[in-house]
Simulated assay, not measured.
Amino acid sequence: MDILLSADEVTARVETLADRIAPEIADGTIVVCLLTGALWFTADLTRALSRKGKRLAFDALWLSGYGDAHVHSGETRVRAGLQRSVKGAEVLILDDVLDSGLSLKGAVEIVRAAGAGRILTCVFARKPWPKPRIEPDFVGWEAPARYLAGYGMDDAGRLRELPGVVALD
């Protein structure tokens, strides 16, 4: 495993993101975590935003497009939808990594269809991609085009628990 970001570097990037996001969102913004990968990032970022005085609501979407594969299947399935109404609300969608953009695009479509008033997106890591795709409003780290694990990103369900980010290729 090649360590790309240490735990301390991850923490610093999350704090920097919170500094950028806090002035852009209102109290009461609904944070939507894309399960399962964004759980670690969401926990850290929402606590950082709370330290900056933001009071947030929480929800999650469980989308599936990878399974245990290393590439997106091209189809995003909803395994569990939103649990609260987002009608008219400001929503901040959080994901761990953006590569093809299909999961984030699917999440935005779901939240839009549910009537959200304003939708913002944030990813911890953005990998380079050759085709046009959805672009997040906030990005924590411009990642290399490598197979990443740790900090919520996995290899067939393993290594999500690592506090930093590693490359497995």
Rank of each mutant, 00 (worst) to 15 (best):
A12I: 03
A12M: 10
E15L: 04
E15V: 03
T16Q: 15
T16C: 13
A18I: 04
A18N: 08
D19E: 15
I21E: 09
I21N: 07
A22R: 03
E24R: 15
I25E: 03
I25K: 04
D27C: 09
D27K: 08
D27N: 15
D27W: 07
D27V: 11
T29W: 05
T29G: 13
I30D: 02
L34V: 15
L34R: 08
L34Q: 11
L34T: 11
L35Q: 10
A38Y: 04
L39W: 14
W40T: 10
W40E: 01
F41D: 09
A43P: 04
T46I: 10
T46V: 14
T46H: 09
L49G: 10
L49W: 13
L49P: 10
S50F: 13
S50Q: 11
R51F: 10
K52L: 15
K52R: 15
K52H: 15
R55I: 08
L56R: 02
L56K: 02
L56S: 07
D59E: 08
A60L: 06
L61C: 03
S64T: 01
D68I: 12
D68A: 15
A69S: 13
V71N: 09
V71Y: 08
H72W: 01
S73I: 10
G74R: 00
G74V: 01
T76V: 15
R79H: 09
R79D: 08
A80H: 14
L82E: 02
Q83N: 14
Q83F: 00
Q83M: 07
R84N: 14
G88N: 06
G88W: 09
A89G: 08
E90F: 11
V91N: 02
V91K: 04
L92P: 02
I93F: 04
V97F: 01
V97A: 07
S100H: 08
S100E: 14
G101S: 09
G101E: 12
S103Q: 05
K105I: 02
G106C: 15
I110P: 00
G115Y: 04
G117K: 04
G117Y: 01
L120A: 12
V123Q: 08
F124P: 06
F124V: 09
R126I: 01
P128S: 10
